[in-house]
């Protein structure tokens, strides 16, 4: 297990957002975190990253505790984070956005940069453009690319498909399939089609608790579970629309 959360609890202000989160992420796979709005999916990612420090429980990454580490230290251990709003730096060019994530300018770094431009050819053409001028989909690619350049062994991606046109979602799914050969991915995703298309494992969070986890193929078969926690009224067969 590359990442393991045990009974994690997190407060934001006086609100007890995460109450009991326990989950395991095996290396080299895509794990999708599912759940309703406000269930605590984003906060789970933020707690791993140290952005919303956990007040209880343990978070371990590659066998070492992340508890109490500031975000930059978690990042240096090899965790990349792509927030829901992408957080692309609007004043920086695409190239500067990517370079910012490259902590060392070595050959490995440049190789990763080439890989990113390879899977996101759109970015390669816009290196000198300001981040603020990109479309929503391109911003999403830049944000993911940035996390990849950063040499992440684990990539936390928060709702990448949100607000994207179907064609963009398709491109994204393709890129994610390429990425998962290189790094472990934890994906928060509301779009069940995308989730089931790229995900190998799932974790369902409800009301700050982890309620179910297992293989994605089992979830795809279990319509009851889908209905109960995901609010999918009529889960489409197999969900293979993407």
């Amino acid at each position: 297990m590359i990442l393991r959360l045990t009974h994690v609890s997190t407060f934001i202000g006086q609100f007890h957002i995460l109450q009991d989160i326990s989950l395991e992420v095996p290396a080299g796979e895509v794990t999708v975190i599912l759940g309703r709005n406000g269930a605590g999916k984003t906060t789970t990612l933020r707690s791993i990253m140290g952005l919303a420090p956990a007040t209880g429980g343990t978070i371990s990454f590659m066998g070492e505790s992340l508890n109490g580490l500031p975000p930059y230290a978690a990042a240096r251990r090899g965790i990349g984070y792509v927030p829901e709003d992408q957080a692309v730096f609007a004043v920086l060019t695409v190239e500067e956005n990517l370079r910012l994530a490259m902590l060392r300018r070595d050959r490995a770094g440049n190789e990763r940069l080439r890989f990113v431009l390879d899977i996101f050819p759109d970015l390669a053409q816009k290196l000198k453009q300001k981040g603020g001028s990109l479309s929503g989909g391109q911003k999403q690619m830049l944000a993911i690319g940035r996390a990849l350049v950063h040499d992440s062994r684990l990539l936390l991606i928060d709702e990448p498909s949100k607000g994207l046109a179907p064609i963009m979602v398709e491109k994204l799914a393709g890129a994610l399939r390429q990425i998962k050969d290189h790094t472990t991915v934890v994906l928060v995703e509301q779009n069940f089609n995308l989730a089931s298309a790229v995900g190998e494992r799932y974790v369902i969070i409800d009301d700050g608790h982890t309620v179910q986890q297992g293989l994605m193929s089992d979830l795809q078969a279990d319509q009851n579970l889908q209905r109960r926690y995901l609010g999918i009224a009529a889960a489409r067969e197999g969900g293979k629309v993407v």
Partner: peptide
Amino acid sequence: TRVGIIVRAGVENQEMVQVLGINI
């Protein structure tokens, strides 16, 4: 310079700078 990029990025969004492994 890299410091300059970090500073400009930090003016815009500090949290994201941290998340990229930089001790702001």
